[in-house]
Design a binder for these strands. Sequence first.
RNA 1: GCGGCGGUCGUCUAGCCUGGUCUAGGACGCCGGCCUUCCAAGCCGGAGAUCCCGGGUUCAAAUCCCGGCCGCCGCACCA
Length: 586
Amino acid sequence: MGISKYEKVIDYAIKKGFLWQSYEIYGGQAGFYDLGFLGVLLKNNIINLWREFFIRRHQEFVIEIETPVITPSIVFKASGHEENFTDYAVECMQCHRIFRADHLIEEKLNVSIEGLPAEDLERLINENNIRCPICNGMLGNVKKFLLLFQTYIGPYSPENLAYLRPEAAQGMFINFKRVYDLARRRLPLGIAQIGKVARNEISPRQGPIRLREFTIMEIEFFYDETNPSCDLLYDYCTEEKILILTAEQRQRGEDKPISISPAEAFNDGIIKSPWLAYWMCISNKFINALGVPNGYSYFEEKLPNERAHYSKQTFDQMVVVDKWGRVEVSGHAYRHTYDLERHIMFSKADLYALRQLKTPKTIKRIDIQYDKMAILKTFGSRAGEVFKAILTTSKDELLKIISSTQGDNIVLNNITIPKNIFNIVEVEEQQWVERFIPSVSEPSFGAERLMYIALEYAYNEQEDRIVLRFPAKIAPIKVGVTPLVDREPLKQFARKVYEILKEHYYVLYIEGGTIGKKYALADELGIPFIITIDYDSISNNDVTIRERDSKRQIRVPFSDLLKVINLGLNNHDIFSIGYPVIEYYS
RNA sequence: GCGGCGGUCGUCUAGCCUGGUCUAGGACGCCGGCCUUCCAAGCCGGAGAUCCCGGGUUCAAAUCCCGGCCGCCGCACCA
């Protein structure tokens, strides 16, 4: 099989100090990675690019918040994670294969056994003599795996169980009402969050691809199902195609995705939520901007049994990678009203949105009126007690008492009151506003996986050298500066340029070795532009700018340097703006 | 968790089978010096290794044995 690109990229990334395994001096710990300075720069650039695509460009209706990682257990009871993030595994005593205990039982007995504890599963296995489906050996004890990290809040409160969040989403759901109010109760509304999450994976083995702690970038996008207001989908997502491998296709065993525009996919019912489609459209553009060309990523619809408990429809955005064929970089879940409903149920909080109706809804309800004058006349000085009795009884209850009592009188607080004092009427009310639970579509990205993707797609081997072809926007170091040879006065000039550029960018100043070696070093770090100071620079007060991928250079007056670098870093073609282009010095 | 394979300067590795000559050799990289006017030239010098950890066998362990840790591959897991 040979060494895969993954190994090469990771070797390279470790060597250059992008990342390395955490807790090395104690032997390391699987599922955790540290970032070095290049890694931090790259990750921050990716996060900021995500912010640009998903938040800044939608700032009228997408709002970023930040909420804690440590979360009281009640939140994940409500969200369903406490129940659904638990796996029950059982091992065959004979062949040592491991199976999901619940899956085995459900298959064999054809019943749903959600939420049963380990002892019950074990009992079911024994009672029904369920054996290993491969070798028919006896099965061992059922073991429980909780994929949430547990902790306790406060030193004296071991009963205050808490979890590290496995997704940032719950922080957004919990804050829905507050942000909705801040946004002047307008939908659609996106709440975005970027932060650390933790999942206690059983055996993470794919380096930075599968971590126990990672950075998630999510939007919970709330909208009115009856009025999605998703014009953007038709404004921006009708031309460009995305690739989708539908659940139907997968069930038929097909693996060739269809090519369709997001707007079309929604119209055809392939994507069930317009906003899910819109964010998939943006996600596709975003992945392109990280250096993944069209055709190298697609959306895979999850089968119903593969979906998370909260999702009505899920697409995983897959990017083609050398080692595993593809890797999931984002999940797009149509969470619908599930989470808000659950939090309303558990917290009793009002997490409803309001909808203005075009025509008022007429609501009929029964009302009880009573004759104040008659009460005064009948009860005289005791009227006050009667009013109190009536007011402290709820309308529903009063209605029940009146309708269920035979005869002409009812008894309230030991006071006998004639029925004819009450008048039961049907009133019609017009409602212009309606409460409802908004629907949610969620795009969710893992930052570290994107880092790996960016590295793998940037990684190029040219003869015996490595060039990292990062898009300028995410390149950790933006500019290099070097004297052509390490002699004065070139060094002095180069250092001056370095000092100026440092004000604006991360810059690498290079001395030592030959010019070829310096360029190679800069290419290896993915630096998009390198500025060389030669002897002509001294006499003409200008510099050369070399572009990483083409190796071509232009000669630019010193005074224009910043302007040109800025253009270059913003994806303008610096070779077509009029400065002399040098294909190659010899 | 189970099974297979592996772990030696920063990196890649020689040595392990057949214990001693290994105060562990080399290359790349790094540091210092010389040289160098455009794509990883050359020369000189230097620093750099708990041989993964612990225990055992032995006069003697990088080398043999046991346990542990970590990694890779397969089973399983991966909302």
